[in-house]
Design a protein around this nucleic acid. Structure first.
Length: 461
RNA sequence: GUCCCCUUCGUCUAGUGGCCUAGGACACCGCCUUCUCAAGGCGGUAACACGGGUUCGACUCCCGUAGGGGACACCA
């Protein structure tokens, strides 16, 4: 049997981090089983759905590399089928119309709660024979439902805790409960992997499956991601959109690795490639307790993937960031400096933003602005005179390489009985305007004799 | 309130009755390396919520307690 999973977001906003993880788990699970991963947009609520949200979700999915199989299914386009199913259920007497007004339903819930009962509809319209109103599914009052959940294990709920749910609103439109079940069935979904906030829905949906005579897909309800306060992460509760992380300078592969490890583990493995994840991902390794989002760990992973990343790719990614930051376009020379310096830059950045910031000095114009107080300390008269004295030696240098430059500085320091720092730091400040950068001799070599002396002379004057 | 679920270092987790004096990773601290900052190497602080069972033996199984979370719409 081909395993088919789906991710089914409702387009009421961006793709938040919890949704992204759900999609990722579905994706890896499908890939692991050489199955299919489908995408369905649950846009039945026309009021709350928007094209912008759909676009944002699709874009985030693509950015994360969560490539779905086949065409996107739009739930709104399946409405006819949903109402047809509802009509069949009504004809078979498995559903009935209810005309209770909203206030009355509200009252029912409140009194039930007050009396310590499970709140819900009491089924009073079951045999009234209405032919209009909201269509409700007749569910059994006795017995219980068992679900063998791949993550939660065996979960049982008594049927008297499940009320007759509405499957068709009084305006004739299908509800989510109906639509998911029909669509999942029609799409041939074999495994539903979703947040455990849907766990109780599974039981209600079970009754729909059985009313239709369909077999329910295998269920897997994964624990949610919590915020720092321990409460469910949601759009209005600290969950950021995937594109926010992109804008913060995170790499999609870092994102995937981090999200994968949030709630899933395989021994001591931390750095897990896509191929490895596909090879290893099984549902039984998903933990049962909720986890919290930890930005520090994401940053650590991101730094790792930046270091592993190809220099050309990194340059391409930071170029627009730098153009914006500097208010000008990078010249070809500057790009080539940055590219040559990338090995030194990329091991010092946790995000692409940092990488762009750290690379900026390659594109500075003269005079180099002293950026901070620490740098000021190495821009005093003593430092400037050291540089002035050094310039002579450098001008006579034929071979402009890291090693030869290092030698010149070292010999000078020994001659003057100075620590190398006393020379290296002023050079760094002259070149970059700060006290933090990749190795100065590397930077000197990359700039070449001409640019280096230009910056040093300007500093020493 | 009712039902369901959860509980190992601050965080993510390994652990499926003896391998656990509880392992790894992030964060934190120290040392080494060193032209700065990183990276890297070495080391350190730090956890089985609690109480009962079961068992020769429990982080692992059972039952309670406490704490946390989720769900209870003509939203999805």
């Amino acid at each position: 049997m081909t395993i088919i999973t789906r991710f089914a977001p409702s387009p009421t906003g961006y793709l938040h981090i919890g949704g992204a993880r759900t999609a990722l788990f579905n994706y890896y699970f499908a890939k692991h089983n050489k199955g299919k991963f489908l995408l369905r947009i649950e846009d039945t609520d026309q009021e709350r759905s928007s094209q912008e949200a759909i676009d944002a979700i699709l874009e985030s999915m693509k950015w994360l590399g969560l490539n779905w199989d086949q065409d996107v299914v739009f739930q709104s386009k399946c409405q006819k089928r949903h109402t047809q199913i509802a009509a069949d259920l009504y004809k078979q007497g498995k559903a009935y119309y209810c005309q209770c007004p909203k206030e009355q339903l509200q009252e029912m819930r409140e009194t039930a709660m007050k009396e310590g009962r499970q709140p819900g509809y009491d089924g009073r319209c079951r045999d009234k024979g209405h032919t209009t109103g909201a269509l409700r599914l007749r569910t059994p009052d006795e017995g219980s439902v068992n679900i063998e959940d791949e993550i939660q294990g065996k979960v049982t709920i008594q049927n008297d805790h499940i009320d007759d749910m509405v499957i068709l609103r009084s305006d004739g439109t299908p509800t989510y409960m109906l639509s998911v079940v029909v669509d999942d069935h029609d799409m041939g979904i074999t495994h539903i992997v979703r947040g455990d906030d849907h766990l109780t829905n599974a039981f209600r949906q079970y009754h729909l499956y059985s009313a239709m005579g369909w077999t329910m897909p295998t269920m897997a309800h994964m624990p949610l991601i919590h915020g720092q306060d321990g409460a469910k992460l949601s759009k209005r509760h600290g969950a950021l959109g995937a594109e926010t992380y992109r804008d913060m300078g995170f790499l999609p592969e870092a994102m995937r690795n981090y999200l994968l490890r949030l709630g899933w583990g395989y021994g001591d493995e931390e750095i897990i490639s896509d191929a490895r994840a596909t090879e290893l991902f099984t549902l039984d390794r998903i933990g049962k307790s909720p986890s919290r989002f930890d930005l520090k760990k994401l940053e650590h992973l991101n730094a790792h993937y930046i270091r592993e990343s190809d220099n050309d790719r990194l340059l391409k990614m930071i170029t627009p960031l730098m153009d914006e930051k500097l208010g000008k376009s990078l010249s070809d020379t500057q790009k080539s400096w940055i590219l040559q310096g990338m090995d030194g830059l990329k091991q010092r950045a946790k995000t692409l933003i940092e990488l762009a910031d750290n690379a900026a000095f390659y594109a500075y114009d003269l005079p180099i602005e002293i950026r901070d107080e620490k740098a000021e300390k190495f821009a005093d008269t003593e430092s400037r005179s050291i540089i002035k004295n050094l310039i002579g030696d450098l001008e006579n240098l034929n071979e402009w390489t890291h090693d030869s430059l290092h030698t010149v500085a070292k010999e000078y320091s020994e001659k003057q009985d100075l620590k190398l720092v006393k020379i290296a730091q002023p050079i760094r400040v002259a070149l970059t305007g700060t006290t933090v950068s990749p190795g100065v001799f590397d930077v000197l070599e990359i700039f070449g004799k001409e640019e280096s002396l230009k910056r040093l002379k300007d500093f020493a004057r």
